[in-house]
Design a protein around this nucleic acid. Structure first.
Lengths: 339, 339
DNA sequence: CTGAAAGCGCTAACAG
DNA sequence: CTGTTAGCGCTTTCAG
């Protein structure tokens, strides 16, 4: 691999001048620029990024930590973020914390020296103690995407969780349901709190008093979700509709519905946040709250780069909220109405 | 961030000695080692990886390029590879080439300076001309996983494609099918060639002459797959069973079966390589060839690290083949037999 | 506009 | 066993 020094010798100029050409400085005459560019061609020069990083203290790389790469939502988010990075000339490294807070903190630590900024969709499993938070916040800037820890004071980009939940509940109400249960993920996440709030608010607006017995708070462990759903579904008065606030509880709830031998939507109507399977082939097709993945990714990268590049002016915290879309499919169709 | 120099001053020793302690050299007395370790604690020292890389020409990082992160198989593979890397103390960066050969080559180029070795599951879309190949092979060592380009002479780890296909066909034969079609991905991939060969071989063993009209060669573009399948399924003599050689053609085929209004397995039996949806909830449940993802990932990392670490002895090319498992579910059940 | 020189933080000889 | 030294390849003053 040729170095700038080699170029300098080949072109008969100094190393500093070569550097100026390579980094596109204007302080170089046309003539020498041309000479250096020839040398670049001739020696097939590629700048050494590691050396550059050592000098500039910038890696020109962003990190994205997702909580579970096997959930279909996250690959889509990854693609969006990757596209945004590519557009801005940044390299992206993706890590999967496997819904494990310890691992997540490890990964954040690993990223610290390797990236200029971090996009974080946190695991639901997190404590985010004061100590941990300040430790993390002392590293490269962070923007939370999709999943926002309740306690951490950071920039974030996600959907308007409350409205999305309200929309889902309104839909179920309009289908004639009055007994609507909700199965949430961990309430340590701001999103889950908001989605729950939206659910409660929509019910109240419709003159229905939310019942605690219809709020099923689960974590993100499959077994846990299924156990909680099964237990509740087997009780004497089963709700006529169920809203899951994310893909994990959605899939878990659906599994438990089937395990018990109920069918959707005839025995129980079902709506979930996020897609949990390819939507055209498999039955039942699930009514879902779809997030604008692409926009989330782009806005998050944009925000993060602002933080990175304009560190001078301490921007106020941004909480960007985007609109989600409810896609109505079979699983919430009115009783007894079929294809 | 404290540097080794800071440590040296704090501990009253030289920088070189600090380095010896940090990199675990034995050539250090107990006493000075202790002094330095105290300094490390006191100053909360973290070695600077970039500086280390610049010096050692190693990043202690591996790269994994997958062709489509939205296909459920790849997130699982990523997890396995990530686990293997973690176990060996390596950092992993994952890139998604989106089934686009140009992008794939770009990414390979980006990785060149950032990793010590590359795991590649190639896009089906690739040409791998002589020029491109030698260009790539001049970079860090590569091991292909799951998908192997026909032309590229590299180490690889994948399932025994031929046997897996034979197994699938045998299963369909045992269910009474004689007219079995196959829908393949691009035959530029060694795997697809092998799977096709396995299909043909299994038929011949059963005394059935493979027909060209039952070999549907598609690419990895959804539209393409669906178009080809639809066209063929609408012909006068429809096969009674269909084998898809990967998750992409599998999902495409299934979509076209449904689009035409056929049902599985009553109108046509169906088997595919790889899982294309969560298996317990959605109907129909699909009979699938399951790959040992975990083992693939571990073997691939192991092989790659051998290449990286033992460059002296020019190891011969390894082609590791592992056994796949056929999981029989509804979609290939015998006609007229239901739950 | 160009050259010389320092130094980012680390490792790896090599003396002592 | 420890200190000194010379870079890895690049950017960035600072003189000229």
């Amino acid at each position: 691999m040729a170095t700038q020094n080699d170029l300098a010798k080949y072109a008969g100029v100094s190393a500093g001048t070569v550097s100026n050409v390579v980094s596109g400085s204007t302080r170089v005459s046309e003539k020498t620029r041309r000479k250096v560019e020839e040398a670049i061609q001739a020696l097939n020069y590629q700048p050494n990024l590691i050396a550059r990083s050592l000098k500039t203290q910038r890696t020109h790389t962003l990190g994205l930590v997702v909580p579970d790469i096997t959930i279909p939502f996250f690959p889509r988010l990854i693609r969006a973020v990757e596209a945004a990075c590519r557009e801005r000339g940044y390299f992206l490294v993706v890590l999967d914390s496997q819904e494990n807070h310890e691992l997540e903190l490890d990964m954040l630590a690993l990223l610290r020296q390797r990236v200029d900024g971090i996009l974080l969709a946190t695991s639901g499993d997190g404590d985010w103690t004061e100590a941990v938070s300040s430790q993390i916040l002392s590293g490269p800037p962070i923007v939370c995407v999709d999943r926002v820890p309740g306690k951490l004071n950071v920039d974030s980009v996600c959907v308007d969780d409350r409205r999305a939940a309200e929309m889902s509940v309104s839909h179920l109400l309009s289908m004639g349901h009055r007994e609507i249960a909700i199965v949430t993920g961990p309430l340590t996440l701001k999103n889950e709190q908001e989605r729950l709030r939206g659910y409660q608010h929509a019910l109240q607006m419709a003159g229905i008093r939310p019942k605690n017995s219809l709020v099923w708070n689960a974590g993100f462990q499959e077994n846990e979700v299924e156990a909680i759903c099964q237990r509740n579904l087997l009780r004497s008065q089963r709700p006529s509709a169920l809203l899951a606030t994310n893909g994990v509880t959605g899939l878990g709830a659906l599994k438990s519905i089937y395990a018990i031998g109920l069918s959707v939507p005839n025995d129980i109507a079902f709506v979930t946040f996020d897609e949990i399977a390819p939507d055209t082939v498999f039955k039942p097709q699930i009514t879902s709250v779809i997030q604008p993945t692409h926009e989330i990714g782009f806005r998050a990268v944009e925000l993060l780069l602002q933080r990175i590049l304009k560190k001078e002016q301490d921007l106020p915290r941004s909480r960007i909220r985007l609109d989600a879309t409810l896609v109505v499919r079979e699983s919430s169709r009115r009783y007894g109405i079929s294809d």
